[in-house]
């Protein structure tokens, strides 16, 4: 059966605020799944808690809406036990970079073959607009009683430093570009990360759609002044081609430096990609050769209700 975009939509009522950037992300994700033709029952969307966390209910594949900050833990467990399914984890910036930051770093070290998308809106949407970890020092969004007293984390830089092997940024109002990035991320062999700039019209009155579009800059001249540009339109080459230390270090530092660019010019696209790092499944098959053919979820553990695991050798070694 050929799957259409409509097949990936549920009829669950979507209660995001009108104009929320999340709509663009969920559309892009559905388009990407349709484009890749991934069967509905061969993909699982895991999500965190927040406005963004509701995403899994809007997509007609397996959907696991987990706990605040813990989405990566559930997703990795699922993927490890059933490596045949496509796993995409999604969640807010507070979810992934605040309460869940430890899991973010640990996931990078494992490099399990799955995708993680952060809905980066600079605020804690669902709890009414408190500052999220990506909001810049001194900025004051609508709900803040006073300007933000914390510096921001740099999601791209943190991902690169933690060992994610595909690191990219998208923009929720450039749905086609975002869809392309999601397809690349899902096809990437290893752990891929997408930081998606997502305007929150309700609480973030600093990084608005107009701000990203550079409307404020345009007032000074009549040219188009979108802050957002695409790395692929420049000479930037994110890909590691040989596993040599020099090249890897160069690509890592270039990604890190690029990730610091913010203000009048904001890069989107792929910052870093390295498929030469072993995915976690390879590290497992090195010690458990048939892991991928006979993963935990596929193993038969009993024969008519009786266990089929034979531990007699171990038991015999314990004989007195």
């Amino acid at each position: 059966m050929v799957l259409k975009l409509a097949d990936y939509k549920t009829d669950v009522h979507n209660d995001w605020c009108p104009g929320c950037g999340d709509f663009g992300i969920v559309n892009a994700l559905q388009m990407a799944l349709a484009e890749m033709g991934i069967e509905r029952d061969k993909a699982t969307i895991f999500s965190g808690i927040g406005c963004s966390g509701k995403t899994s209910h809007f997509i007609n594949t397996y959907g696991v809406h987990t706990l605040h900050g813990r989405v990566l833990t559930f997703a990795q467990g699922g993927k490890l036990a059933n490596p045949d399914m496509t796993v995409v984890a999604v969640g807010g910036d507070g979810d992934g970079l605040g309460i869940g930051a430890g899991h973010f770093v640990a996931a990078g070290r494992r490099n399990i073959d799955m995708t993680y998308i952060i809905f980066d809106n600079g605020v804690y949407g669902l709890t009414k607009g408190q500052a999220s970890p990506t909001l810049k020092l001194g900025e004051q969004t609508k709900s803040l009683p006073s300007p933000n007293t914390n510096s921001n984390v740099n999601p791209i830089g943190l991902a690169v430093a933690s060992g994610f092997t595909f690191v990219a940024r998208g923009y929720s109002y450039d749905v086609r570009h975002l869809k392309d990035l999601i397809v690349k991320a899902v096809k990437h062999k290893g752990l891929s990360f997408l930081d998606v700039l997502q305007p929150c019209p309700t609480y973030n009155d600093v990084n608005t759609r107009d701000w990203y579009a550079g409307v404020d800059l345009a007032q000074e001249s009549m040219e188009r002044h979108s802050r957002i540009y695409k790395l692929e339109d420049t000479k930037f080459d994110p890909t590691v081609n040989y596993a040599g230390e020099v090249e890897v270090n160069e690509k890592l530092s270039q990604a890190l430096i690029k990730s610091l660019e913010w203000g009048d010019k904001i890069p989107t696209g792929v910052f870093y990609q390295n498929e030469l790092v072993s995915p976690f499944s390879t590290r497992l098959t090195d010690k458990i050769p048939n892991y991928l053919e006979n993963p935990p979820a596929k193993q038969i553990i009993s024969n008519a209700g009786s266990p089929n695991t034979d531990i007699s050798k171990i038991l015999d070694s314990l004989d007195v």
Binding site: T66, R70, A81, N294, A297, Q299
Partner: peptide
């Protein structure tokens, strides 16, 4: 495994106990 290819237990040392239970739940859902 009796009359079958070998099986395996995937044992994962996690970053904390929150991750341990999260992963276990994810695995159980499969």
């Amino acid at each position: 495994i009796e009359n079958d290819r070998p099986g395996s237990t995937i044992v994962i040392q996690t970053e904390d106990e929150i991750s341990a239970i999260g992963m276990m739940i994810g695995a159980s859902l499969t």
